[in-house]
Design a protein around this nucleic acid. Structure first.
Lengths: 131, 131
DNA sequence: CAAAATGATACTAATATGGTATCATTTATC
DNA sequence: GATAAATGATACCATATTAGTATCATTTTG
């Protein structure tokens, strides 16, 4: 029952770090060193964040990454969805089809409630609020 | 981000089913048929529930399983812990040691809050309440 | 041109998930 | 007592996910 996987967690740390000096360019090596994250793994993560438009990259010597979005516009829920896919606590399907059991559907109702609560909390939890 | 895995879900369904006729003995084959769960998998699940004292078993011909605990004394959180281990949204360790970053610790605080809420909700969600 | 950076992508190891298979033991019934 | 029908215990297996590594191509600075 893991809410946040390692890559999501690393992404959050990296974004928080980068957000502290907004216009500065950080290379992967620099960030990996400061945050104690394996360099090639962090690199992959930053490339994804770049593709998704959260950070910008500069290629070539002296290049690196810089925050692109405002820290209060990046929520933990965004990062979970980027690295872990749609944020759902349960698909509630049974062999590809919606589950047909009334009892599990009571369960589904409850889990859906919890999910709504969790999602709204995580949506309001931004990089800015973590600085 | 799965709150409940398949075995936990199957266990809940089976317990709900068995709870409907408290003193009746159900064989695995019977339950597997009714609930449309693969028989050997359900068998493994029921054996675990038996070991944990939620149901009792009767060996030999005519044997099977019967509920042992009161349905309102079996909560979803118990089942999650039995099949998925300690119910935690995040271990918040970093290479086996508690994570040293203040920013992720803000994250930890928030996730711990969410966890407390989630746990208390799941603790009050019992087999009885799902009938 | 060389060095230092990212882009793209393929590969790998470990773990978790969702089961199956099998042999041993117990019990009811004939 | 033999047999059938049940669980107990345990080992095995296939697939997916997680957590990375490795490498070649491209871009940019100096």
């Amino acid at each position: 029952m893991k809410l946040i996987t390692r890559d999501t967690d690393y992404a959050i740390r990296a974004l928080c770090f980068v957000a502290k000096q907004k216009r500065r360019i950080y290379s992967v090596g620099e960030l990996a060193g400061k945050l104690k994250i394996p360099k090639p793994f962090l690199r992959k993560i930053l490339q994804i964040l770049n593709k998704k438009g959260l950070i910008v990259s500069y290629k070539g010597k002296g290049g690196g990454f810089m925050l692109d979005l405002a820290p209060n516009n990046i929520s933990v829920i965004d990062l979970i969805e980027i690295f872990q896919g749609p944020a759902k606590l349960s698909e509630h399907t049974f062999k590809k089809k919606p589950c047909p059991h009334s009892k599990s559907c009571k369960l589904k109702e409850k889990i859906d409630d919890l999910e709504r609560y969790l999602m709204s909390e995580l949506r309001s939890l931004t990089v800015f609020s973590l600085l």
